[in-house]
Amino acid sequence: MGLKKLAAKVADYKQRLEKGQTSEIKPDHVQKVLAKLEKKQVDLKARFDAETDPGERERLTGKLGIAREQIARARWLLDELD
């Protein structure tokens, strides 16, 4: 996902926040999500290392890719909040 799309999502969030339709995000909230994603990444990596079946390894590689992308997004969001 590019910056443009995430920026649009954030702009939409800010509008909803101004209208009192959502709760304010603080760095702690992002940190909490980030910790959960990092835990999942560690678990997936451990499963990948233990896996011998090529098909399964390929699936886990795909999942690790998604986890990495989400972690990158969370870190970016955290930077923006900080």
């Binding site: 995000i25 909230h29 969370a74």
Partner: peptide
């Protein structure tokens, strides 16, 4: 259930 955390997940989710 925490709306702020749910919002974070919404933003960075696919």
């Amino acid at each position: 259930r925490d709306r702020a955390v749910a919002e974070v997940e919404q933003l960075i989710g696919f």
